[in-house]
Design a protein around this nucleic acid. Structure first.
Length: 573
RNA sequence: GCUCCCAUAGCUCAGCUGGAUAGAGCAAGUGCCUUCUAAGCACUAGGCCACAGGUUCGAAUCCUGUUGGGAGUACCA
């Protein structure tokens, strides 16, 4: 980050006045939002009291006294601020030569020697991915890329919901429907059919509540090792994974491990023993629980009255396993905010067990996907009642709509279907990431499939235009061929100022575990790039080489940022 | 009841660790394609930053309270 060098120089020069220490200046210094106010700015208000003078006067006096580092072309006092203007050519040279040297790694942070586990997506086996699953999946994916760029070792885990009472329900309904249970039929199962069984179960259980008990019994047997139930469970799992892998491939998402809840089955008894040994386990209302009254939390349920385990039990086992296996420095759970209490309880139990590392476990909550009902009110969609849209349907619809637009705008585009998928998926992904994750996402088909303005396609189009210019140029510009003076116009300078913020934005995104900060940054780059390309003719101009160089640099930066966000950096559309 | 989240233009949202005239997109109105992708650019219009206090030289931003909306709250995940 070139910015730091300039900051240091300015701070040192200001510290010579002995009114500030270098550290104070660095703390006060900001980057003005309006370029008119220079590259760096030091507010002098804090000196008003000690010097008993108006900030405006102080700034004016200072601007006359101080010596300027060679990189600063001028320093002006305006409204109590000391505004520093960096020599444009030095600024350009420092920033763009760094991009040219470091390529896509420009703005990445040095290795932190830390391991972070990110647990995301984590859908339930036997159910289709609903549209809302895109949230955990893409927020988690973006975070894992961002952490990587910030110098962390990242372990991506898909903690599949492949265990629990739900399988009791599925099996009960499967057998009630008298579906075939031979090996070949089981191998042909699809998620679609399984999903249907869920819906049927919910409906049937409303009339016959005893089915719920039946499901619990079946799961208890499955957990106890019943072979027949086990074979059904395995078939259900395989059928679901097949479809999951297909969708993850479209989304461009990958995991290091698919360790579902069932993986921890054998690790649960030792955890329960450990809880007993540490005198944390109590029996209350026939259930085994860990009381958390001292923390003003409801008890954490460890084992149901029929002896089977719960979500929390498996999360405890998983956490302990992960710490042992990966010695993580941080473990993120990208799960909707509705489960905040659950994670508070799990982390609290781990803490009571004496695991100091429980403080490194973080729940990364996010808002819901809301659907509009007939009265125009936004409410939570439910897979069970079928009011939620399926992710694959939304992707397909987006792809289809984009394909229409391609046929209209660029009928000769090769591989149009694939590109349409990449644009459609990116549009959905970006729509999900562009706002702060805790905000609820109001989903309706019209706005989800509208691709104007601040959308995925807008970003991709900026990248495409930068690629197109390079393609037509047919050559690469080297650093030595650039005349910095040719890039001192407002559009170029604005673009470079934005490029320089990459590392700051990455660290901010990590600090807040907030992909939206990077998403907004992507918009800033794309906006400035569109403006630059529109106003500054590259090929055939007197400034061709220098401008082409800026195009190259911008494209590299934009590509990396888009990739981190899960937006496909396509080269033609 | 208790806990957490949200409140900024007609709609959907940005606004970094407090700083200079509060910004986008959509919707409305108007220009710009014989020149690198118009999925774009330029412009007009649109605001009591929910309300009330407090901290501060300075608050959309921090603190407290109020109101409105959402989520969660022991044998689902």
């Amino acid at each position: 980050m070139a910015t730091n060098l300039f900051k240091q120089e300015i701070a040192e020069a200001l510290a010579n006045t002995e009114l500030f220490t270098k550290e104070q200046v660095l703390g006060l210094m900001t980057i003005p939002q309006d370029p008119q106010h220079g590259n760096f700015s030091v507010p002098c208000f804090s000196l008003a009291k000690t010097l008993r003078k108006a900030p405006k006067i102080i700034a004016e006096d200072l601007s006359k006294q101080i010596s300027l580092p060679s990189s600063v072309s001028k320093c002006e006092a305006i409204n109590g601020y000391l505004n520093y203007y960096i020599d444009p050519q030095i600024l350009l040279q420092k920033i763009l030569s760094a991009v040219a040297e470091q390529g896509e790694k420009f703005g990445h942070l040095p290795s932190q020697n830390k391991t972070v586990i990110i647990d995301y997506s984590s859908p339930n086996i036997g159910k289709e991915l609903a549209f809302h699953h895109i949230r955990s999946t893409m927020i988690g994916h973006a975070l894992s890329c961002i952490y990587q760029a910030a110098g962390y070792k990242v372990i991506r885990i898909n903690h599949l919901g492949d265990w629990g009472t739900q399988f009791g329900k599925l099996i009960v309904m499967y057998l009630r429907a008298e579906l075939p249970t031979d090996v070949e039929s089981l191998a042909k199962l699809t998620v679609k059919e399984l999903n249907l069984l869920y819906t049927q179960f919910s409906k049937a259980a409303q009339k016959k509540p005893e089915m719920e008990d039946e499901a619990r019994e079946v799961f208890a047997k499955l957990e106890a090792g019943d072979e027949f139930y086990r074979s059904l469970w395995e078939a259900f799992k395989e059928a679901t994974l097949k479809e999951l892998r297909r969708i993850y491939k479209q989304l461009g998402v990958d995991f290091d491990y698919y360790t579902g809840e069932s993986f921890f089955e054998d690790l649960i008894p030792p955890v329960i023993d450990e809880l007993k040994a540490k005198n944390l386990l109590e029996v209350s209302q026939e259930r085994e629980v860990v009381m958390l009254e001292d923390l003003d939390l409801p008890p954490c349920l460890i084992r149901k009255s029929d002896g089977s385990t719960l979500y929390a039990t498996r999360d405890l086992a998983a956490a302990i396993y992960r710490q042992k296996e990966y010695a993580f420095d941080r473990c993120l759970y990208v799960v909707d905010q509705g489960q905040a209490l659950h994670f508070k309880q799990v982390f609290a139990v781990l803490n009571k067990m004496g695991y100091a590392w429980s403080k490194n476990m973080v729940h990364i909550p996010f808002g819901l996907i809301l659907h509009q009902n007939e009265d125009g009110k936004w409410e939570k969609g439910k897979t069970r009642t079928g009011s939620a849209s399926l992710l694959r349907d939304v992707i397909a619809a987006a792809q289809e709509k984009i394909l229409e637009q391609i046929q209209e705008k660029n009928p000769d585009l090769p591989d149009a279907e694939h590109v349409a998928m990449q644009i459609g998926v990116s549009a959905l992904t970006f729509n999900d990431l562009k706002n702060r994750r805790l905000m609820d996402v109001k989903f309706d088909w019209d706005s989800a499939l509208s691709f104007e303005g601040a959308t995925g396609p807008y970003l991709q189009n900026a990248h495409v235009r930068l690629c197109s210019i390079q393609r037509r140029a047919g050559y690469q510009v080297e650093l030595s061929q650039v005349d910095w003076f040719h890039l001192t116009d407002d559009y170029s300078m604005e673009l470079v100022r934005i490029i320089d913020r990459k590392s700051t934005r990455i660290s901010q995104a990590v600090e807040h575990d907030e992909p939206a900060l990077l998403a907004q940054y992507a918009l800033e780059i794309a906006e400035a790039a569109h403006r630059f390309v529109h106003h500054n003719r590259v090929l055939g101009s007197a400034e061709e080489k220098s401008r082409l160089f800026l195009v190259q640099c911008t494209q590299i930066v934009l590509k990396d940022v888009l990739t981190m966000l899960g937006v496909y950096p396509i080269e033609a559309m």
